[in-house]
Amino acid sequence: MDEALRFARAMKWMKKGIVRLISVCLMIFVMFPFIWLLLSSFKHPVELLSVPPSVWPKEFTLEYYADLLRNEKVVLALRNSFIVSAATTLISLAIGIFASYVFARLQFRGRKSLYLLIMGTQMLPAMAILIPMFMLMRVAGLLYTYQGLIVANVAFSLPYVIWMYAAFVRGLPYEVEEAARIDGCSRLQILFRIVVPLSRSGLAASAIFVFIGVWNEFLFAVVMTQSGTRTLPVQIAEFIGEDRIRYEMLFPASILSCLPVLIVVMIFQKYIIQGLTEGAVK
């Protein structure tokens, strides 16, 4: 009896141990690549190119971060990334709020097919649109400008905003809108005085998604920008393509490019997880 009890307890303990071991391995797998990049960004080139690689930097240096902020190309790319991402986010939301409200609240003919049509554009491979878009933008004189890249990004972000934000609007209590209508609110007043304020978190989540998506976007940016309008990912890829890769510049630049995103993600992680899972699970 005693023996059996001890065996059962050992089994339970072992099970727990195994689960924990797997958890730790998993955490290492998820975190290690980024931590390695972070550590590498503090190393001097001599140390970066040493065999065997040192795990902990012998001397933490911020020299190359400082260099980076003095590098005109990088500062310009950082600025371009901010301009393009912020403008895309604002425009997509401005247009998306109306469309989301329509799909969440109004009944009309062709509602379902129009919705599917919008979502269907998300399924098209980007490459099939990029090539003709490159030619069309060239003809329209928008190639290599902020405007060109921004409208292209808006077209790809909009369906996403509608999908996500409409789900949030649908979750609002309809009674409030009804009451407002009886009190004599116009449609636009209902939308902007009631629906939008009540769904702030949904708006924030959609904005974050668009911003991160555009901030990280590479394919359209690499084709549709030039030295003056290059975004940060394109600039980094440019560094990678150089004959003698300057790793000491590359790693701090990469960290710099994920920093804004990671800060935003840390602050708003609750909304992000909600936004990520809500639409697909329900």
């Binding site: 998820v30 990280n216 990912p233 980094i236 490019s257 994920c258 995103v261 993600v265 992680q269 992000i272």
Partner: peptide
């Protein structure tokens, strides 16, 4: 888990 998701493909 949000870390790999939030990093760009370039990085």
């Amino acid at each position: 888990f949000l870390l790999p998701w939030a990093l760009s493909y370039v990085v």
